[in-house]
C-alpha cells in the first residue's frame, strides 16, 4: 500500500507545472524515503530530477517500493480539479495498475477522488556523478526567470559567464545583442534577493534558451535558484522546495561544431 498526503495541493500542482513542458510521461519511484522522479526530455539534452522527502508529507506510507508510471498531461488534468487549499492524497495498492488522487476541501465538505491508469514505462536511469563545481551562483528565482525571458528575444542561446566579479548573461542574434551583469550583493534586506557567488575558477558556458525557460516554470516553488557550472559538464539549475525537497534540472552545454 502506498499513500502520501499533502496539506496543500498547490505544491503538487506547481511541481507538475515545473516538469510538464519537458516530459510527457515519467515514473514516480516511491519508497520509505519519499518520492523520486528522474527523467530525460525527449531530445536527451536535459534531465529532471525531483525529490519529495517522506517527512515533508502530512502523512506518508510506503509498505513496498512502488514505481508509478504516469502520463503527465493526464495527471495535470486531474490536479487542475483540486483547489489550491485542498488536501491531496495519492494512493496505490501494491502491484496496482491505477493510482487514485483524493482531494478534500479545508472544511471536509467536499471530497473528490480521481482514478488514473498507470503506464508501464521503459526507463533509462542515468547515474549522476558527484561533481565539484567551479562556480555556484545563487540568485532570486524571479530574477533568473526574467533574465532568461528577456534574453530569449535576442537569440537561441544564452552565454553564462561567471567570474569573481559577478555573473554575466549574454545573448546575440539578428536584432542585436544583450548583456545582463549581476554583481555579488554586498548586503540585502531580503536574503532571497541576494546574489551569492562561490567560485573556484571562472567558467563560461553556452546553453539553449528554450530549456532554461522550461526550467523557470519551477519559479513558484522557491524564492531562490542555484546554478552550478563547471567547464564541459552539464549546468545544474536547482530549486529547493521548502520543507519537502528539491527539483534539479541538468542541461548539457552547447559546444562549437
Amino acid at each position: 500500500m502506498f499513500e502520501a498526503r499533502l496539506l496543500r495541493s498547490s505544491i503538487l500542482k506547481k511541481v507538475l507545472e515545473a516538469i510538464k513542458d519537458l516530459l510527457t510521461q515519467a515514473t514516480f519511484d516511491c519508497d520509505d524515503n519519499g518520492i523520486q522522479l528522474q527523467a530525460m526530455d525527449n531530445s536527451h539534452v536535459s534531465l529532471v530530477s525531483l525529490t519529495l522527502r517522506a517527512d515533508g508529507f502530512d502523512k506518508y506510507r510506503c509498505d513496498r517500493n512502488i514505481s508509478l508510471g504516469m502520463n503527465l498531461s493526464s495527471m495535470s488534468k486531474i490536479l487542475k480539479c483540486a483547489g489550491d487549499k485542498d488536501t491531496v492524497t495519492m494512493k496505490a495498492q501494491d502491484n496496482a495498475d491505477t493510482v487514485t488522487f483524493v482531494f478534500e476541501s479545508p472544511n471536509q465538505e467536499k471530497v473528490s477522488d480521481y482514478e488514473m491508469k498507470l503506464m508501464n514505462l521503459d526507463l533509462e536511469h542515468l547515474g549522476i556523478p558527484e561533481t565539484e563545481y567551479s562556480c555556484t551562483i545563487r540568485l532570486s528565482s524571479a530574477e533568473f526567470a526574467r533574465i532568461c525571458r528577456d534574453l530569449s528575444q535576442f537569440g537561441e542561446s544564452i552565454v553564462i559567464s561567471c567570474t569573481k566579479e559577478g555573473v554575466r548573461f549574454s545573448a546575440s542574434g539578428d536584432i542585436g545583442s544583450a548583456n545582463i551583469a549581476l554583481a555579488q550583493t554586498a548586503s540585502v534586506d531580503k536574503e532571497e534577493e541576494a546574489v551569492v557567488i562561490e567560485m573556484e575558477e571562472p567558467v563560461t558556458l553556452t546553453f539553449a534558451c528554450q530549456y532554461l525557460n522550461y526550467f523557470t516554470k519551477a519559479t513558484s516553488l522557491s524564492p531562490q535558484v542555484q546554478l552550478s557550472m563547471s567547464a564541459d559538464v552539464p549546468l545544474v539549475v536547482e530549486y529547493r522546495i521548502p520543507d519537502i525537497g528539491h527539483i534539479r534540472y541538468y542541461l548539457a552545454p552547447k559546444i562549437d561544431d
Binding site: 539534452v45 536511469h125 542515468l126 542561446s157 548539457a252
Partner: peptide, 14 residues
C-alpha cells in the same frame, strides 16, 4: 555554430 550536446556524453547509464 554551436551544437547542443546530449546528456549521455556526461552521465553513466545504469
Amino acid at each position: 555554430p554551436l551544437t547542443q550536446t546530449k546528456l549521455q556524453n556526461f552521465f553513466t547509464q545504469i
